[in-house]
């Protein structure tokens, strides 16, 4: 391995790293918002909307992100909707992640027993208070392991952004391999940066999971 090559590649990777992080976390933020809204709508069986969001969840859970991105980035402009590659990445990841987050949060909501709702009602809470003060926080903590798994999954999924010519980590690696054939160096840096991106999340995730997961409060 050539350290000179490594250090000359490094700045390129750092730049790509921050782009990947930016798009990744913005997409995850979007997916969380979308997931909460969708879980809420489906759980409470809000007419019409719950059918729409139900279909959305099924469609995006059962198709690969790569295809979703191709359609959004290359297909939609032909129908008059042109978005920048970055925006496509964020929206694509957000839509994919939203469908996963929705399932995670919904199963949390389902797991909160109806007796919890009743005892909150018996204390004189209004329906909205029962939801915001009791059911939702409980459901969210029950969903923590699934949410953490989704965050890791989504950060990994960012690797396909290169397909819509975003200059992310994969793109940089592929580009350098194609240009200079310093395959080993390019791959080592690729792995390193993905480790920097995901190891802390994986670590923090398992700590949070232990604290909040499976209703293990107060340990």
């Amino acid at each position: 391995m050539d350290t000179e090559v490594l250090s000359s590649y490094l700045p390129l990777y750092v730049e790509a790293f921050f782009l990947t992080l930016k798009i990744g976390w913005l997409g995850i933020f979007l997916s969380f918002v979308l997931g909460v809204a969708s879980a809420f709508i489906i759980h409470f069986k809000i007419p019409v909307l719950s059918a729409v969001f139900g279909a959305y969840v099924e469609i995006f859970r059962n198709t690969p992100l790569l295809i979703q991105l191709f359609f959004i980035y290359f297909g939609l402009p032909k129908a008059g909707i042109s978005l920048s590659a970055e925006l496509c990445g964020i929206i694509g990841l957000g839509l994919l992640g939203g469908s996963y987050m929705s399932e995670a949060i919904r199963s949390g909501l389902d797991a909160v027993s109806s007796a919890q709702t009743e005892s909150a009602l018996a204390l004189g809470m209004k329906k909205t208070e029962v939801f915001t003060l009791v059911v939702f926080p409980e459901a969210l903590t029950l969903s923590v392991p699934a949410i953490v798994a989704n965050v890791i999954f989504l950060l990994k999924e960012t690797s396909v952004f290169s397909a819509i010519s975003l200059m992310d980590l994969m793109f940089t690696a592929k580009d350098l391999i194609g240009l200079y054939y310093d395959t080993t160096e390019a791959l080592v840096l690729l792995v390193m940066f993905y480790m920097v991106m995901l190891l802390p999340v994986s670590f923090v995730g398992s700590v949070v999971e232990k604290k909040a997961g499976a209703g293990m409060f107060g340990e």
């Binding site: 960012t158 994969m170 690696a173 395959t183 791959l187 690729l190 792995v191 190891l199």
Partner: peptide
């Protein structure tokens, strides 16, 4: 399991496809 958990499949694909040939 941790490697699989945090490494994107595409990265692994690159390592095997490009890396194995080279190394």
């Amino acid at each position: 399991l941790e490697i699989v958990r945090i490494m994107p499949q595409l990265v692994l694909l690159f390592i095997v496809y490009f890396g194995a040939t080279k190394v």
